[in-house]
Design a binder for these strands. Structure first.
Lengths: 340, 340
DNA sequence: ACAGGGTGTGTTAACGCTCACAGTCTTCCC
DNA sequence: GGGAAGACTGTGAGCGTTAACACACCCTGT
């Protein structure tokens, strides 16, 4: 009786033995090294198949220093925007043969992002994408370990790192100009939370479009992205129907809240007040009325950020910062109309 | 002149040298081994701190055979349900000190899930969570590598693997009974796509509640979860206001479509027709009218699945299948009323 | 004084792979 | 026909960690 068979997964040496070659030749076949005789290659391939061999990527990562894993740090992936972006990132990364390791933060502050980056670095990721929509998160990019390839999504111009983002300013301008073109005296704005770069960009685009066209800039109503905050702002606006005829809401969820508030108060949209949202979530088309909004191509942002990151990883050396801007798109629906 | 300093990250041996101990002692400190003198421990800790040493988890994984990484396979994480579940999974996993590697599938079929599992297995994950809401995906669990700890979320009773899910049947019954209690003759149903286990469960719960109470079971209107499909079904229902007074819609997004269709056709909710949805997405509360619905605790599902998975991983040996059911909750709002 | 059992530490050998180098066997040219 | 260039393959070392063992040391009890 020999030693018990001891079922353990086959390793390269096992394949080598079966194929009658050295482990190194097996490695060469696996890595598509050119100098392997065709006949040898097929013999090795057959042995791999026969044993059901799978190469151990952990051992490989140890020696190559590359794990083919990318880290993603994101804020609350329950929201449509981050979720879509992360989805785009994941698809693009997998197509390029990379694994994706995710850290999703409940609250996003500098310390949280910092920890997440540390955590992923420990795991040995080859690069990191930070979906950093908040100013405080963007700052955390400054303490990225040197030499770690990184890309910020929606990250402002903070730090040394490349940035991919949707042109928020332009999107907001698109919305505002549309309303102005319809003959409205001015456009009110319900903004996102103060710390968010996207919120800031939208305020800026709205304000610029207004002043460029020589219109009055009303006070901003502050929201927090939630439908509820939109609802509250909507209630306030509903009391001012004599002056308010058009409002640009910083995202579709808040716009839903506004719609609800207006419905309760008997304010008709778009007859009395026109509304434009932002994001184009899948629900917007079925709001009552269907929401005119600005579409962000989150998928494109995700894909683009992976492009940039992989280029950085493959360059090996330090790269110069890139800055990519994905254009937003105006989507006309039924929540806007000509001024009375 | 000696050799150039060659800035490479410090390894255990470097720490050992600085602390004046062997690398093994450093390892012991890092792994909280009991037999280390307190004084030695602090010396090592100080050296670690001084050098900024971080242990190489890849090397560790190679020898321990544990990567402390969990794999998650999910269908389209852009949807609220999967996104919330994955979020819950990720939080729970990270709290337990595990990394999470995600594969998000555009289309979920057996081959796709199979590939995803292979992919994650190659990466050396310690266990896999499959968010397998479709029958075809659930089948793919059968070709899970033997010995790989796994949990299915919303996976039916397929295969050998443990399952965590929301009690869809009970949720649908809750919705249906609520409508019946309001005095409606019967309840119509707009279902999810045929292949989905959740859709099936909801149909079943609805049908059972109806027959148990001795009511007629109308034909099912088939939807596909999208607001648009709900809209189409709503249009059809709007033509039948004489017989239809209550409808249970299999998810909130479709309910939104129904609401839109009814608004267009002048059907008043809840005065003429009552509607109950399913999921309780953040928007539902601000639909017009606010939607009565069934809440699924996705976070609980995610956390529970990690519990089960970790127990399986830590047990090392083969475990018996577990089956966990998270109860749904009825959320009363304004889209339902007493029958005329 | 000496066996016995902790406690603390060092030494050596894996883990499964790739890299660098050293071979061997062709082939081709003068 | 000899030598060089190229194609193909094997050998050995090393990646940074943990596991297994060996060893020195201290305490206890007889």
């Amino acid at each position: 009786m020999g030693p018990s068979p001891e079922r353990r997964p086959p390793v390269m040496a096992d394949v080598a033995k079966v194929a009658g070659v050295s482990h190194q030749t097996v490695s060469r076949v696996l890595n598509d090294h050119p100098n392997v005789r065709a006949e040898t290659r097929t013999r090795v391939l057959r042995a791999i198949d026969q044993l059901g061999y799978r190469r151990n990527l952990v051992a490989r990562a140890l020696v190559t220093k590359h794990s083919r894993t990318l880290g993603v740090v994101s804020f609350d992936t329950t929201l449509y925007g981050p979720a879509s972006t992360v989805y785009g990132i994941e698809q693009a990364a997998r197509e390029a043969g990379y694994f994706v390791s995710i850290v999703s933060l409940r609250t996003i502050d500098r310390a949280g992002v910092h920890d997440a980056i540390d955590y992923l670095t420990d795991q040995g990721v080859d690069g990191i994408v930070v979906v950093a929509p908040q100013r405080s998160a963007a700052q955390a990019l400054e303490d990225m370990p040197t030499g770690m390839p990184a890309v910020a999504v929606e990250g402002g111009q903070a730090g040394e790192v490349s940035v991919v983002s949707v042109d928020q300013v332009e999107g907001a301008a698109l919305a505002t100009r549309h309303l102005l073109d319809l003959g409205h005296e001015t456009v009110w704005h319900i903004s996102g939370p103060a710390d968010w770069l996207e919120a800031e960009g939208r305020v800026q685009g709205w304000r610029e479009a207004l002043t460029a066209a020589g219109h009055r800039v009303p006070d901003v109503l502050a929201g927090d992205w939630s439908p509820r905050s939109g609802y509250r702002a909507g209630k306030r606006l509903a009391e001012m129907t004599s002056e308010v005829t058009a409002v640009f809401v910083a995202n579709d969820q808040m716009a839903l809240g506004v719609l609800r508030a207006f419905a309760e108060e008997g304010v008709r949209v778009p007859e009395q007040i026109s509304i434009v949202g932002f994001d184009d979530i899948p629900e917007s088309e079925f709001f009552s009325p269907p929401l005119t909004t600005i579409r962000q191509d989150f998928g494109a942002v995700g894909r683009r950020s992976i492009d940039v990151l992989l280029r950085q990883i493959e360059a090996e050396g330090p790269c110069e910062r890139e800055r990519h801007v994905v254009p937003p798109r105006f989507v006309a629906r039924a929540s806007t109309a000509h001024a009375r």
